[in-house]
Amino acid sequence: MVDLEKLRTVAKETISRDDVKYLIGWRQGTYGFRVTPCFIEEPGEAEQLIFSPLCTNNLASYLIVTEKLPLPRGEKPDTRKVAVMVKGCDSRAVVQQLIEQGIKREELYIIGCPCEGVLDLKKVEAKFPHILDPVAAQWGKDKIIFQLPEGVVEVPREEVLAQKCLDCRDPNPVIADITLGEEIEAWGNGEYQDVKELEAKSAEERWAFWEDKFSSCIRCYSCRNVCPMCYCKDCILDRLNPSWIYRSTNISENTAFHLSRAFHLAGRCIECGECERVCPVDIPLMKLNQKFSKEVEEKYGYRPGIDPEAKPLQSSYRPDDKEDFIL
C-alpha cells in the first residue's frame, strides 16, 4: 500500500524540482466517495494529494487532453516536465502513448503507485446512498475499509471493486521514475470471461444485446474524451466534410460510432476501463474493448502498453500472420 506521508513528501520534492512544471494527482472530491484529478503547482498544495481505492481517474489522459494556448510572439515554450501519478493500468496508457510517439519520455516524470484495485462508484453509491460528507477508503486484506460518517465499515473487495480490477494483470506500474510502496502480486488470469460469455451466444442474441445498449447512447463522447488513447487532433467524429458518421442519434449512427470507436482502440486499448466508468448511460464498453484485447493477444501475442520498445500493433506485421478467414 502507498503510504500517504511518503506520497506527499515525494510529491513535494518532485514539484520543487526546477524541471517540473506541475504534478497531476488525485484529491478528495466535493462530496461522498468522489475523487477528482488535481494539478499541483506549489509544494504546499501537495498536502491535498491522496491515493486510495477511490482514485479511479486515469491521469494519463491529461497528458494528452490538456489544451495549450498559442504562444505569444517571442515567448519560448515551457519545456519542463509534467509529473504524473499512475496506477498500473494508467502506466500502460503512458507506455502506449510513448510507443505511438504521442508524448516524449523526457517530458514526463512518472510517479508509480502500485494499486490493489479501484472501486466501481456505481456499486459503492448503490450500497451507501445519500452520503454527502467526504468519505475516505483504504485497502485491507481482501476487503475495502470505508470511513463513513457513521463509522468504519468493511466490505469484501469483490462487492465493490470495478470489474476491470477484478481481472487485473498489471497492478504495478510498468514504467515509472519513482515507485511508491511495495510491488503487488498480480491476481488476474487473463481469461476474458465476459467476452467469452457473449461470444457463446448466437449472432442474433449478440445483436439484440448491443442494439439495446447502443440505442441508449447520447453521443456525449465522454468515452472518447476520457480515453488516454484517443488523442487525434482532428477526430473523425468532429469532421463534417466528409461526415462519415452523422450526428443524428439512431441505431445506425450510434452503431457506426461505437464500432469505429472500438476499432480505433484495437491493439491500443490498455484496459483502464475509463470509458465504461464515465458513460452516463452505462454502456458496457469494456466488453467491446476487451474483445480486441483478447483477439490481439490470442492472434498476435500482443499486449498494448507493456513494452515501450514495441511497435504499434496495426502498423507492424509478421509475414506469417494468421489469415484463416481470407478466401
Binding site: 442474441e205 449478440r206 439484440a208 448491443w210
Partner: peptide, 20 residues
C-alpha cells in the same frame, strides 16, 4: 500485410456485435 491484420480484427468485431 497491414490490411490483413486490420480486417482480421474488423471481422472479429463485426461478428462480435452480431453482424452475420
Amino acid at each position: 500485410f497491414y490490411a490483413r491484420r486490420r480486417f482480421t480484427l474488423m471481422n472479429e468485431l463485426l461478428n462480435y456485435v452480431g453482424v452475420d
